[in-house]
């Protein structure tokens, strides 16, 4: 016997009600008008937990339309479980086309990475942000950090970075590395590795940041100056890898370390799975690439 579901609870298109979408849309417009400033918004509970991308999901749900093609990545990969889950959510509630191909997506929701393939005008990159306040770990109080932003008083964060140099000989921040936007607001780029920071600078794409639990939205319009904080004698540097991707031989990309056995065997592969697959399709091969050619379904149209 199959029980008939009752109409005890029903949900609106794209999950959010229209009033909520309007509220988020207004916050997005303010964010774009004041690049790097965190706009408070009345974040809603979402059907996934806070901390699991609710900010990004609310932003995406508020901007997405029937003609959009959505890509969702977590750690650069389309096949990580949370990315799969969020993609399935939008397929279900908004019935949009989804893709794993960076170049084909109109909206890319991401956690922790910026795709390797350069973004283009018209694309929107939506970041899931856990802690939007770049000063939070230096000053836990919102009342204080708000004052610091208002007065453009960023001495504290420079002191923190400089203490790193004094103690460790280098700036010991490797991800969520703070940036300054258009010479005004210090902004948290979300926990992307600092490797990705230069990609934010004057990107042709619109970048939107959603922090659901902390109730903040912020934005970088295209072609906006985004400069990683540094010092004259200790300029900002990105991570470098000693070897290319073991699967596609890519260099100058961000690599994940994959443990192969329990005797210390490991290899480095692209964290951006789409980038890696694309390169292998084009015939690039790393020293551990499998023989079998790839044949993956990449785009699913709306139903």
């Amino acid at each position: 016997m199959t029980a008939q579901p009752t109409d005890i609870a029903t949900y609106n298109f794209a999950y959010l009600d229209e009033q909520t979408k309007r509220m988020i849309r207004r916050a997005i417009l303010k964010g774009i008008a004041i690049p790097g400033y965190q706009v408070p918004f009345a974040s809603r509970e979402m059907p996934m937990p806070y901390g699991w991308g609710t900010g990004g999901v609310q932003v995406t749900a508020s901007i997405i339309g029937p003609d959009d093609v959505l890509k969702v990545i977590d750690q650069g990969a389309d096949d990580t479980t949370n990315a799969v889950s969020i993609r399935a959510f939008f397929k279900k509630v908004a019935n949009v086309a989804v893709t794993t191909e960076t170049a084909k997506a109109t909206i890319i929701q991401t956690r922790h990475r910026i795709p390797e393939h350069p973004l283009s005008a018209g694309q929107v990159l939506v970041y899931q942000v856990p802690i939007p306040e770049p000063l939070r770990f230096l000053e836990p109080r919102e009342t204080e950090t708000r004052k610091m932003h208002a007065l453009e008083e960023y001495g504290l964060i420079h002191v923190k970075l400089y203490e790193d140099i004094a103690k460790h000989g280098r700036i010991a921040t490797t991800y969520a590395y703070p940036v300054k936007v258009e010479g005004r607001y210090v902004m948290d780029p979300s926990p992307t590795p600092k490797f990705d920071n230069p990609k934010m600078h004057r990107s042709p794409a619109l970048q939107l940041f959603g922090a659901g639990r902390e109730k903040r939205i912020y934005a970088l319009p295209p072609f906006t100056d985004v400069v990683s904080l540094d010092f004259e004698d200790h300029p900002f540097e990105v991570q470098t890898f000693d070897q290319p991707c073991a699967l596609c031989a890519a260099e100058n990309v961000y690599l994940d370390e994959v443990i192969l056995d329990d005797h210390g065997g490991h290899m480095f592969v692209c964290s951006d799975t789409d980038h890696c697959e694309k390169r292998r399709e084009q015939g690039h091969r790393g020293h551990l690439a499998p023989e079998i050619p790839l044949a993956l379904e990449k785009t699913e149209p709306a139903q």
Partner: peptide
């Protein structure tokens, strides 16, 4: 629903560019 989305996206794109 869809008209509001279309209008908003035009405003968003205009504000961003």
């Amino acid at each position: 629903v869809f008209d509001a989305q279309t209008v908003f996206r035009a405003v968003m794109d205009a504000m961003a560019r």
